[in-house]
Structure formats: structure tokens, C-alpha cells
Amino acid sequence: MTSLSTITDDEKKRYVIISYMFECAAKLRLSIVTTASAAVIYHKCSSYLEKTDFDQYTLAATALSLASKYEEEHVKIRDLINVTYRTLYPDRPYLRISNEYYRLRNTLVDCELFLIRILGFHFQFNHPNKYLLHYLDTLTKWMMITPSTPIKNNINLIDIAMSILQDTYYDFTLIKDYSPQHIAIVIIYLLIKTYNLEIPGVTNDDEHINWMKVFSSSMTNDILIEIITRINTVYKYVERTLEHSSSIKSH
């Protein structure tokens, strides 16, 4: 297993692709769950195709297409091709219905069947989203945060939690090595630390594990530290990698 505080070159390449997928997903107005599913499909397939020269952008577009179907947020293939094409080549003219369009469409359809086989028809992924929302809901009741408490313009709290969660999808390690319950708990912990929120009954740092264990009995301090380390590493490198790749693009 690679160290949690370093990033391989392969992982850096994936950050660029995931960022590209998030951009396309936002343009296609896909929901966060569909976007997350697409990221998981991409990561899984990409790890099967490591050391091949399989085109990563094709893979990304296909993952978006499959996820949109699986999560019942169907996107027309024409829209999908247009958006993925324009995002990849912002300087080129719009893609007309042409031989090139049909070639791209054929590639996408073939690639869909290929990914379906790689995944063996198993698309389901237990996303941390629902755990995060439930835990947060339960915990704020326990904390008795009322509307008059400043941070209880609570929409922000949930939004921030969801943004952090969405960013974890950049990283395959976080997806494949940790349970969704643990990821959700750690994200809430990060919120608590960031905003200095008080939990009744928690007087020092070591006691945080108590409320975590209520949600997931398998949670430990080691797991907490591992996930936090990894999330911090991801944040550090994603930004750098993306800056680097966009500076290459603009040259």
C-alpha cells in the first residue's frame, strides 16, 4: 500500500481527469450522487486498465454516461458528447453532426459495453452521502443547535460537508479502502474542528471517539487519523496538480 501522505504519478493523472469529469457533470447539471457514481466507475475501470494506453477522457465520458443511466438521470448521448468534447477542446468549433460525431458516438457505445463487462454489471456503490446527512442530523439535535446559534444557518454546514465529501472522490484510496460510514464521520469531525463546534459531553480531544462509536462501532482513532491524513494530502496535491496541468494547457 502506498503511503497516505504521498501521491503517485498515476494518481496525479487521475486528479486531472476527475476535475474534468466534475466540470462536465456540472455543465450537464448532474446531481452530486450521479457525479460521485461516475467518479467511482471511472476509478474502478481505470485501475483495471492501468499500464494500458486506454484514453482516459473516453473513459471519463463513458463513466458519466453509465452513471447517468444507472442513477436515473439520463442524459442524451448528443448532449454528453457535445459537453465532453467542448470541455476537452474549448478552442475548437462546436461539433456538428458529422462523421467525427458518429465516430465519437460509436466509440462511446463500444466503450460502454467494455466498462459494463469490466464491472461485471456491478455498478452499485454505497456512497457516504446518506450516512453523512443522517449523522449530521442526529448530531445537531444532540448538540441542540438552535436557529439563533450563528452556525445554525445550517445550510452552510451541510453544504460544506457535502463539498468536502465530493472532493474525496478525487482519490481512489479514500473510495476503496475506507467504509462510507467512516468517511462520513471524519468529514463531520473536520467540520467540528474547523468551526470549533461543541459537542455536549466532549471536554477534550480524546473524547470525540465516543460519539463516533455511536454511529459506527468499528470506528477507531487510527482510522480517523488515516482518513484525515489522506484528505489533507488530496487537498494539497489536487490543487497543485490542477494548477500544473492548466499551466501546461495554456502554454
Binding site: 443511466k69 442524451k76 448521448i77 459494463i116 454489471f121
Partner: peptide
């Protein structure tokens, strides 16, 4: 309907049967 790729209905059926 290969035009739209793998049919969403088949994907739906698989998803439901797996669950």
C-alpha cells in the same frame, strides 16, 4: 436503441434484480 448506448431499461432491470 444502440444509438443511445446500452439501454437504460436493461440497466434498470439489472439494478433492481441485483438489489
Amino acid at each position: 436503441q444502440e444509438k443511445e448506448g446500452f439501454p437504460i431499461t436493461a440497466l434498470r432491470e439489472i439494478k433492481i434484480l441485483q438489489e
